[in-house]
């Protein structure tokens, strides 16, 4: 879904937040590379949820725990407060019921972590201004074959959190692998948030 360099920046930001030995649930974990990274870097005890057969197989090859299933059907198999962190990496924009997924993340985990491509990034705005749906390394799909159905800007996400009883604890904004502090909703390509129940 994203370039390797982008993914590494995203991974490193998440790893920085994770306490050593923490219990981590990664929703839409794909091939399990984030879980593997966190296990190596943070000694975390990780589980992934993945719907795709190839992803599940790749998780086995990556040596990480995985439960095959559709996270959008809820996380009923996971007990309340059973994880320190529930992560949704580069997947928020592709989930159907964003509200339900975020609320399930905070039921199962003490903290949630999401990363998503910031639709407010100036390059995206420029493409829309020029009359086209944005395409970039973060948004690599054409409009007709994109899995992304709920794209948002950082401001949109922060408003969402305020309206849904979610307190943002920290955020990191990344463009080309580097941190962005100036006008992040304009200059940030990738947003990484950690949040908890307000």
């Amino acid at each position: 879904m994203n370039t390797n360099a982008m993914q590494r920046a995203d991974f490193a930001a998440i790893a920085n937040w994770i306490k050593p030995g923490a219990r981590v649930l990664d929703l839409g974990c794909g091939d399990g590379s984030l879980l593997r990274f966190l296990a190596e870097q943070r000694d975390s005890i990780g589980y992934g949820v993945e719907i795709d057969d190839a992803g599940v197989l790749a998780c086995v090859n990556n040596g990480v725990n995985v439960v095959q299933g559709d996270m959008e059907r809820g996380l009923s198999g996971f007990a309340d407060d059973s994880f320190d962190y529930v992560i949704l990496s580069q997947t928020l924009q592709a989930v159907r019921s964003s509200e339900r997924v975020i609320s399930e993340m905070l039921r199962v985990g003490r903290e949630g972590i999401v990363t998503f491509p910031n639709f407010g990034y100036w390059r995206n705005r420029l493409q829309v201004m020029s009359g086209h749906m944005p395409m970039s390394s973060n948004l690599p799909y054409a409009w007709f074959d994109t899995p992304n159905i709920h794209l948002c800007t950082m401001d949109d996400f922060e408003n969402f959190c305020r309206d849904h009883g979610v307190r943002i604890r920290e955020r990191i904004v990344i463009t080309n692998g580097g941190a962005v502090t100036l006008m992040p909703n304009l200059f940030g390509a990738l947003a990484v948030y950690r949040f908890e129940r307000a």
Partner: peptide, 8 residues
């Protein structure tokens, strides 16, 4: 908290 792989 056991190690599990579950495939359907």
């Amino acid at each position: 908290r056991r190690n599990v792989t579950y495939a359907e």
